[in-house]
């Protein structure tokens, strides 16, 4: 895990790690200063990532690509705060506003699901952008019930079997329109179709990771 930048028991958000070679520092600090009723001042310096086992990736350490990790306790208000922070982050890194909007949508949808179905109160978000390679990776992690995991696996099976993102989205729109309640996979279909990101599910015991990968215009 990264060296904590700001951490406090009972504070609803814990941010770990920090690095970055440009813009994100500004977004990061803004988020820290406004993410709760306790608007304390944080250290101004940014810590460097350590070589501990759960650092996000070798790319992050070696190339210093813009990235961040968030681990926080579920709260609807916090999801929106995180989305705004993430949108700022994307707008800073990604030159095309349309692409930044697509990424913000997918991040919000993934995070909301992670928060909604977390069984232990924690939800984690990892975002990593490699402007040189033109790739973006978003990952959420949470613990979930067996029934939720089963539901997710069925949704991902539908994604795998679908002929196209548009076809699955159309199917999910129709299904959602008549569904009384519950999760029907609309959010995932929306990510695939509207955000143009590919999705992957990783399950280990009761821990669920949803990965979304997409492309951005590579930096010149």
């Amino acid at each position: 895990m990264y060296v904590p930048v700001a951490e406090r028991d009972g504070f609803p958000v814990r941010l770990t790690g920090a690095l970055t070679n440009r813009g994100p520092c500004r977004s990061w600090r803004k988020f820290l200063l406004t993410s709760g009723s306790d608007r304390r001042t944080i250290r101004s310096e940014m810590t460097r990532p350590t070589a501990n086992a759960s650092a996000p990736s070798r790319d992050v350490q070696e190339k210093g690509v813009p990235s961040f990790d968030l681990l926080f306790r579920p709260s609807v208000a916090l999801i929106s705060i995180v989305r705004r922070f993430v949108a700022d982050f994307y707008n800073e890194i990604v030159p095309d506003p349309d692409t930044a909007s697509r990424l913000a949508l997918s991040t919000h949808e993934l995070l909301e699901n992670a928060v909604k179905y977390s069984t232990d109160g924690d939800a984690a978000l990892h975002v990593e952008i490699d402007p040189a390679a033109g790739t973006v990776a978003v990952r959420t992690r949470n613990r979930a019930t067996a029934s939720r995991i089963d539901r997710l696996q069925r949704s991902f099976a539908e994604i795998s079997a679908a002929p196209s993102a548009a076809a699955l989205y159309a199917q999910m729109l129709r299904r959602s329109a008549v569904q009384a309640s519950g999760s029907g996979g609309l959010g995932l279909a929306r990510i695939w179709a509207e955000s143009e990101m590919t999705l992957r599910l990783v399950v280990a015991d009761d821990e669920v990771e949803v990965h979304a990968r997409g492309t951005i215009a590579a930096a010149e």
């Binding site: 949808e109 329109a177 929306r190």
Partner: peptide, 10 residues
């Protein structure tokens, strides 16, 4: 979000 979006669909 998609849950609110569903309300439009319904």
């Amino acid at each position: 979000n998609s849950t609110c979006f569903k309300e439009f669909l319904r």
